[in-house]
């Protein structure tokens, strides 16, 4: 009830926030140059390479193409050589940024369809996320919260996903059943198997623990969760979609927001994700999260 009321009241803010983020995503990719839709159309029209077996080759570094591509960097230095961090937040304030981000993440239209009796638990986890969210305490985000991989290395028999987050990886064997032991384990990444449906790589994942969340606002799941990820290469774009099956707590499967990643053609350098050593938790004074 409260959630519904709050959602209605926050629509304007969420919309404004979503529009803001759309602008920022564009800026991140093109340094403010604009033209995302046009550029995406060009990327989609590019020829996609094939594997030896004729299926699309998903290999490559995906996303992150905007790093270092800022178009107006010089303007960030004044005549004296001082640096100015330009923020698009309201009043340039990190507090406003975090609060808007919280709204943005809580009031997405696409909520996981929890059975009614589980929303109180979600609300509790959300309010107490600084304690309850294991990702805040340096544990892996896991599948599907960690999103699509940073780099894919594909062969007809095995696909390797590499993630910058905590230097993690996943091995996806093709065209075989789940491993009988791994798929009964309780892990952060689960046991994955892949197959082709037309030109779409479909990855079936099971064998999860119940430590991770689906997303930031307290969206928990059980250790019976199954996730199906779909990867489709369109030229130099990669379409990523994940669907969550957890019938113990969801009324129906949850289809997460589609993601589109661009092939990153910048020279690959290894970016080590430093270890996570959390010290903020012991110093938190309120329950607010950003």
């Amino acid at each position: 009830m409260i959630r519904e009321l709050a959602r209605g009241a926050a629509v304007a803010t969420a919309l404004a926030s979503a529009m803001l983020f759309a602008t920022q995503d564009l800026s991140a990719q093109y340094g403010g140059a604009g033209g995302r839709a046009n550029d995406d159309a060009k990327l989609a029209a590019m020829p996609a390479p094939k594997l030896a077996d004729g299926h699309p080759d998903l290999s490559g570094r995906w996303g992150g193409g905007g790093f270092g591509g800022g178009g107006n960097g010089a303007q960030r230095f004044d005549a004296k050589g001082n640096y100015h961090n330009l923020r698009n937040d309201r009043k340039g304030s990190p507090v406003n940024q975090e609060r808007d981000s919280g709204l943005d993440q809580r009031f997405l239209d696409n909520l996981p369809p929890y059975k009614p009796e589980f929303w109180d638990k979600v609300d509790y986890l959300d309010v107490n996320g600084n304690v309850e969210d294991s990702n805040f305490h340096c544990f892996p985000a896991g599948v599907p919260r960690m999103g699509p991989p940073t780099k894919i290395m594909a062969t007809p028999t095995e696909v390797v996903f590499l993630y910058n987050q905590k230097n993690t990886w996943r091995l996806i064997p093709m065209n075989r059943p789940h491993d009988p032991i791994n798929s009964k384990d309780q892990t952060y990444m689960g046991d994955s198997v892949g197959k082709w449906e037309g030109d779409t790589l479909v990855v079936d994942v099971t064998g999860f623990n119940d430590e991770t969340w689906l997303a930031w606002p307290g969206y928990f799941h059980t250790n019976k969760m199954r996730v199906v990820e779909k990867f489709r290469r369109e030229g130099n774009l990669l379409h990523y979609q994940a669907t969550v099956y957890d019938p113990d707590v969801l009324t129906e499967p949850w289809v997460m927001e589609d993601r589109v990643l661009r092939l990153n053609t910048q020279p690959m350098v290894q970016i080590e994700d430093p270890p996570c050593v959390e010290t903020d938790g012991a110093n938190l004074y309120t329950k607010e999260r950003g």
Partner: peptide, 10 residues
């Protein structure tokens, strides 16, 4: 969805 505590909480 990286771990991120709110600045204003601390």
């Amino acid at each position: 969805a990286l771990a991120h505590h709110a600045m204003q909480a601390e």
